[in-house]
Simulated scan of single mutants.
Amino acid sequence: MNQETAVSHPQLGDPIRNFSVLLSPTPRGARLARLLAVEQLRSWELPLEAPSQIVAELAANATTHGRIPGRDFRLTLYVVGDTLRIEVTDTRGDRLPRLNPAAPQADSGRGLLLVEALADRWGVTLGLPPRKTVWAEMEVGRARHPQG
């Protein structure tokens, strides 16, 4: 299930852009998260490279560290004004991400370092148990709004 909405904020007049989709907690689901994000960002005429890398890292973490068989993860993209917010929600609120330097010879463990380098800010929000949302925000400029 995915959805896109455009809602005008009554005071600012800027639309709030939103895209959300549930995906399977598998490597295929993580790849699909990145592909869907790229297509959505392209439709909003926003930068692709850094946001798609952030989506890839957060989705990979959700499928690797936040996976519980049979429980999907959610990718959500918001654009409010000049800010893109990327959220990945999984059902392992008991396993919070930590920013740790990876060993030089390690093949993995650098995902959050990349997120920190590419995003303007990032963090974790606990939801109703057992959920957590890892989010990242970037200043991206104004999204073009489709002609109605």
Rank of each mutant, 00 (worst) to 15 (best):
Q3R: 14
Q3L: 13
T5H: 09
T5G: 09
V7M: 09
S8C: 07
S8N: 08
S8M: 10
H9K: 06
H9T: 09
P15R: 10
F19I: 09
F19E: 07
L22I: 04
L22E: 12
L23A: 11
S24P: 05
T26S: 14
R31L: 13
A33R: 08
L36M: 14
V38C: 07
L41F: 05
L41N: 06
R42M: 04
S43A: 12
S43L: 04
W44H: 03
E45D: 14
P47R: 10
P47Q: 11
L48K: 12
E49Y: 03
Q53A: 15
Q53L: 15
I54Y: 06
V55F: 04
V55D: 00
V55T: 03
A56M: 12
A56W: 03
E57L: 03
A59G: 04
N61G: 03
N61L: 02
T63V: 15
H65T: 11
G66M: 08
P69G: 13
R71F: 14
L75E: 01
L77D: 05
Y78I: 07
Y78D: 14
V79D: 03
V79Q: 11
V80K: 08
D82C: 03
T83R: 02
T83D: 00
R85K: 06
E87L: 07
D90R: 08
D90F: 05
D90L: 07
T91H: 09
T91S: 14
T91Y: 05
T91Q: 08
G93C: 01
G93E: 00
D94Y: 05
R95S: 13
R95W: 12
P97K: 07
L99V: 14
P101W: 04
P101F: 04
D107N: 10
D107I: 08
D107A: 13
S108C: 04
G109N: 07
G109H: 04
G111I: 00
G111S: 03
L114Q: 10
L114D: 10
V115E: 01
